[in-house]
């Protein structure tokens, strides 16, 4: 089954980012084909140089650099979101395909299920 997780929330303002990732990893472990799309403030989850510890939080986003262990290699980032948040591709901790809105629409249409927690 092809699943897309849309991550649109910043990493540390709630547990939703962590809980979305946990769910995506569970699906990948059971042989679903999982893609991740970072959009809106969700692009901050991929920002390099996070120091979550300073805020007393666990830096769960480190897991994004080890997703190949779970056979998740489809990472996508919204071009629009990068512009809005004034981030560039080289500020992201992983290689991700940058998609415009039209390409995002095509990506969503290719899925069996789409989740945005």
């Amino acid at each position: 089954m092809n699943l897309l997780f849309i991550l649109n929330k910043p990493p540390y303002s709630s547990d939703i980012g962590k809980e979305s990732l946990d769910m995506a990893l569970a699906h990948a472990t059971f042989d679903d084909t999982v893609s991740l799309l970072f959009t809106g403030q969700g692009v901050w989850q991929l920002k390099t140089d996070q120091f979550a510890k300073l805020a007393g939080l666990k830096e769960f986003t480190r897991l994004y650099t080890g997703l190949d262990l779970y056979d998740i290699d489809q990472l996508f980032v919204s071009e629009n979101a990068l512009d809005t948040e004034q981030l560039t591709r080289d500020q992201l901790m992983v290689e991700a395909s940058v998609l415009n809105d039209e390409a995002i629409s095509r990506l969503i249409n290719q899925q069996d299920r789409v989740f945005c927690l």
Partner: peptide, 11 residues
Amino acid sequence: AGLGAWVEAVA
């Protein structure tokens, strides 16, 4: 239940 139960429910 574990997240595996959800994966199964989706499948």
